[in-house]
Design a protein around this nucleic acid. Structure first.
Length: 949
RNA sequence: GCGGGGGUACCCAAGCGGCCGAAGGGGCAGCGUUGAGGGCGCUGUGCACGUAGGUGCUUCGUGAGUUCGAAUCUCACCCCCCGCACCA
């Protein structure tokens, strides 16, 4: 079987499946249904074998369930709402070389690339309209999807579904508005998630600073120095201020005050408040060396020069608390040594000789933990790395264990308990204001610098609601989680971690909030209950229903059975069909998604189902899949170019080989290392086994022997076990285990059978291969269809029943017999090896005496020697009996004892095989009748073996 | 930091109290077949000893413990991975 034929096979059967529509699922009340839904993909770029793996998991399950007699609904849609496509399209429009080059490399034709500057064309291209698309990928690997239910989240009909959802959630008061700081791109005027920013900006977060307004008089007017800190409780310990003389500062009007801000901070603050305007540029040098007033303590503190203050970080005005901030302490020590600098600003040495003010009591430290830690770590200068560590150390201890002392207004209070109160008090007293900044610089993928924008009318989903959380936890409790180890994590997300979630944004591809058209539903929040939409998508597509017709009343009726169908614009009959589909298919039986979705998609799905549907419609199962890594452990991704497009695999007709290899690699929920090279190797290995399969199918029709010997009974018995084990593994979704049994173990047994059988028994072999093809069908469907066809099977193997397991077909005697044969074969080899007898003339196999079998059975029952020796048949063996007894006691095996007859019978039937294999005469004897010295070594299940020249 | 998951022979990966020197796959080695260092088949793959299928020692991140018995249970320690949101 050459690869070209394999390729034809895959195409051929995909076409036949499609023509026969065998994966199209309709309501059939005589059958149990099984509804599985994989996270619908976001078509952000070309697909690769990493994507394929995720969906192949579903496909094997869907196919297996179908064979088990379920009416399986396996649909797919496209999540097109969101930003990545918009950003990509924008880049193409701007002619960004890198983006365009990458697309070309991935195989997008030059003339197509230009078209993709339209975000809608972009998502369509990668969802369905090209060889690089997801749909193409899924079709190429043979996913058994009902395509009649396909939809995109930018369809008008789907948008109506989302609007229904949000209208109803709003009525339940689960959607609310409040103030919220977001990371924001000033150029695109939209919030930035991790996906939208450059790699080095990943993980950036918004931090809330408290800016204390220190006062200074200059040129007869009062300027405020807003010193931003993350530790508001330390304001009582300020000894000085730091400004960077080399940095650009401005004085700005903020409300009715005048603030000194770094130039960077001035540009940012406008996104947080509107009452800001520039007054003038301002040189900090004019006030360095002067004194300003702490708004809380009214202490006068000196303003010192500091080149480590960066403009991009917070306000550019830094208050110094050397007792608790190692950085401040070291900076002051450094400055003491710089006489020229001090001279320049006319700062006297005595002015630096201030006392540090300790505020926080800690057991293991003195008054100034920062000084202690600096000494401990031997920090002598502004060494970034060490200071970073020291700062964290001090902060952690002070926050968790520290208590404020009498130098503060909160003596005796624990830091972690009073921190928020301090902030509130200061804000209320007008002594400080909130200033937001990112914890590290943010660069948007569009190139702009990210800022924090304070949005004052942000819409939230109220995931913090305790009742809502409670019913979500109920839902989870009633659902199956595979693998079970992820349940705890999900529980934690639902119960503890999840807070209110912004569910709308100003600019994105998607759906308008029905009650506030200024906002679009945020892309994760429109993907929570879409599984319900699949149930009606078929009707919507087939009946060409448009968005106009899908008013809220339609969904109320279809999903809830509420309201009057007469009020709907849709024909009653069609409406009833939708209702029927929903009632039949819902709830979802299995929801599949990657681990990275536990805290978002999956948690949101749980929340929203809990809110929108009754308990009997809640999802019944959640299943996690892992991802594909390359040989270096990096995620396979389009941008890295380290994956195969499925078309490349299909070109060689190697889809089934790849499928099998993937399943065999690891459990579906674990990540697998499966780079291109590994794919190649696996495909080669697996497809060579496939050739064997074709050969076996041909052999079924060969002339054959009729007797049904121990090997025949053995292989039939083993096939029963393989079916049972494969089924058991599939029920637990353990695809690797299933493939190990159904493919590899069965393969090895069948190979062994064929090798050892001189004349195949036609009936037996046909049965074996028939069973085998059926249990392989979920994994390698194209191959199995072809083999099924060649075997003369009717219809599609995809529609066949899963083989029944039948305990009566398990033949333990035959299995013992075969095992006996294997043991003897191994032993003969070993003896040959040790003795150096290359070519023995004769091999004598001596089956052990009856009394040994009896004794073994007796010992397994727990009988003692004294008891046994009362019996003649043992006593007359004398010392041999006692010796054997001791041996048995030592080993205590739990194996069934074969009878003499059984042993001899099995050996008789395998005699030919031994003679052929070892090219020697094989003689069978019973221990009782043997003259051989070594006959005494015979044991039940382990005959004595004598080789003779 | 918080939460979750892991560390098994050359590699991947099962096993989760006795049948475990540890499944399966890969790799590697030998033999056979073959025109071939390719394909296929068979065999081997911790160490040592052994002219009879055996025996001894040693191994499942590290250390200690429970047990007649531990890769499997308990405790401590070390290391790795994942998620931490408004982003798909």
């Amino acid at each position: 079987m050459d690869p070209i034929k394999l390729k034809e096979i895959e195409k051929k059967w995909q076409k036949k499946w499609k023509e026969a529509g065998i994966f199209e699922a309709d309501v059939d009340k005589n059958k149990d249904k099984f509804f599985l839904a994989h996270a619908y993909p976001y078509p952000s770029g070309p697909t690769h074998h990493g994507h394929a793996r995720a969906y192949l998991f579903d496909d094997a399950i869907a196919r297996y369930k179908r064979m088990k007699g379920f009416n399986v609904l396996y649909p797919m849609g496209w999540h097109c709402t969101g930003n990545p496509a918009m950003i990509k399209a924008e880049k193409i429009r701007k002619g960004d070389e890198e983006t365009i080059e990458k697309l070309k490399e991935a195989g997008v034709p030059e003339e197509e690339v230009k078209r993709l500057r339209d975000p809608y064309k972009y998502v369509r291209f990668f969802a369905t309209e090209s060889d690089l698309s997801y749909k193409s990928c899924l079709e190429t690997v043979g996913c058994s999807i009902d395509w009649r239910r396909e939809f995109m989240t930018i369809d008008e009909t789907y948008k109506k579904f989302i609007q229904w959802q949000y209208s109803r959630l709003r009525e339940m008061d689960y959607v609310q508005q409040k103030e919220y700081p977001v990371i924001w791109c000033p150029d695109q005027e939209m919030p930035l998630g991790d996906n939208d920013v450059e790699d080095e900006s990943q993980g950036a977060e918004s931090e809330e600073y408290v800016a204390y307004k220190f006062r200074i008089e200059t040129d007869g007017k009062e300027i405020l120095l807003p010193a931003a800190t993350l530790r508001p409780e330390t304001v009582y310990g300020v000894t000085n201020m730091f400004l960077n003389p080399d940095l650009d500062y401005v004085v700005a009007e903020v409300g009715d005050e005048e603030w000194l801000l770094s130039h960077d901070a001035y540009e940012k603050i406008g996104y947080q408040r509107e009452d800001v305007s520039l007054i003038e540029e301002f040189s900090p040098e004019s006030i360095i060396g002067d004194y300003c007033k702490n708004p809380v303590t009214d202490e006068e503190v000196i303003i010192l020069p500091a080149d480590f203050v960066k403009g991009g970080s917070a306000t550019g005005v830094v208050m110094s608390v050397p007792a608790h901030a190692p950085y401040d302490h070291i900076a002051i020590k450094e400055l003491e040594k710089k006489e020229d600098v001090l001279k320049k600003y006319d700062i006297g040495a005595e002015e630096l000789d201030f006392d540090y003010i300790g505020l926080i009591d800690l057991e293991e430290y003195g008054k100034c933990p920062a000084v202690d830690v600096a000494e401990e770590l031997e920090i002598k200068k502004l060494d970034e790395e060490k200071l970073e560590r020291a700062t964290k150390e001090v902060y952690r201890k002070e926050f968790h264990q520290g208590t404020l002392n009498e130098n503060t207004a909160y003596p005796g209070k624990k830091v972690n308990e009073i921190k928020d109160k301090v902030k509130e008090d200061m804000l209320a007293g007008g002594l400080a204001e909130i200033y937001y900044d990112t914890n590290k610089p943010v660069v948007c993928k569009c190139g702009a610098k990210g800022v924090i924008k304070l949005v004052d009318d942000q819409w939230f989903l109220k995931y913090s609601d305790r009742e809502w959380k409670a019913s979500s936890l109920d839902l989870l409790e009633g659902a199956e989680v595979v693998p079970e180890k992820y349940r705890k994590e999900l529980e934690y997300y639902l119960d503890v971690w999840m807070g209110d979630k912004p569910c709308a944004r100003k600019k994105t591809l998607g759906t308008e909030l029905p009650f506030d058209k200024n906002w679009m539903v945020e892309p994760l929040s429109d993907s929570t209950v879409y599984m319900a939409y699949y149930t009606i998508a078929k009707t919507i597509n087939q009946e060409n229903i448009d968005g106009e017709e899908l008013e809220n009343s339609v969904f109320d009726y279809v999903f809830w059975g509420k309201g009057d169908p007469e009020n709907c614009k849709i024909e009653n009959e069609i409406l009833e069909e939708m209702r029927e589909e929903f009632l039949y298919w819902y709830p979802l039986d299995m929801r599949i998604a990657g681990t990275e979705h536990l805290s978002n998609h999956l948690s949101f799905m749980i929340f929203q189902h809990a809110a929108l549907f009754n308990e009997e419609r809640w999802p019944k199962g959640i299943t996690i899949h892992g991802m594909v890594l390359d040989e270096n452990g990096n995620k396979v991704s389009a941008s890295k170019g380290n994956g195969y497009n499925m078309k490349e695999i299909a070109k060689g007709g190697m889809v089934d080989a790849m499928r099998l290899g993937m399943y065999a690699k690891s459990s579906p929920w674990d990540d697998i290392r499966f780079g291109k090279k590994e794919v190649d190797r696996t495909i080669e290995n697996v497809s060579s086994r496939f050739q064997k399969l074709f050969k076996y199918v041909e052999m079924v029709d060969e002339e054959s022997g009729e007797t049904k010997d121990v090997l025949d009974r053995w292989i039939l018995s083993k096939m029963q076990r393989h079916v049972g084990n494969t089924e058991d593994a599939l029920e637990r979704l353990e695809l690797m285990e299933a493939v190990n049994h159904g493919f590899y173990a069965a393969f090895n047994d069948i190979k062994d059978y064929v090798n050892k059988k001189e004349n195949l028994n036609h009936n037996v072999f046909e049965r074996v291969i028939n069973i085998w093809i059926r249990i392989l069908a979920p994994f390698t469907p194209h191959l199995c269809e072809e083999l099924w066809d060649r075997m003369g099977g009717d219809g599609f193997v995809s529609e066949e029943d899963w083989p029944e397991t039948n305990d009566e077909m398990i033949d333990e005697a035959a299995e013992r017999g075969k095992k006996l044969g294997d043991t003897i074969e191994d032993d003969i080899r070993e003896i040959k090896d040790i003795t150096g007898l290359e070519k023995p003339e004769q091999i004598k196999i001596v089956s052990s005496a009856v009394w040994k079998r009896e004794m073994k059975a007796a010992v397994q029952e727990g009988k003692e020697l004294s008891e046994l020796m009362k019996k003649d048949r043992f006593r007359k063996q004398g010392d041999d009996a006692a010796r054997y007894f001791r041996e048995l006691k030592k080993k205590h095996e739990e194996v069934d004892v074969m009878s003499c007859e059984e042993e001899i019978q099995a050996l008789e039937e395998m005699k030919d095989y031994f003679e052929q294999t070892f090219q020697a005469e094989v003689v069978l004897e019973r221990e009782e009748e043997s003259d051989e010295d070594k006959a005494g070594k015979a044991r039940p299940g382990k005959p004595a073996i004598v080789l003779k020249d």
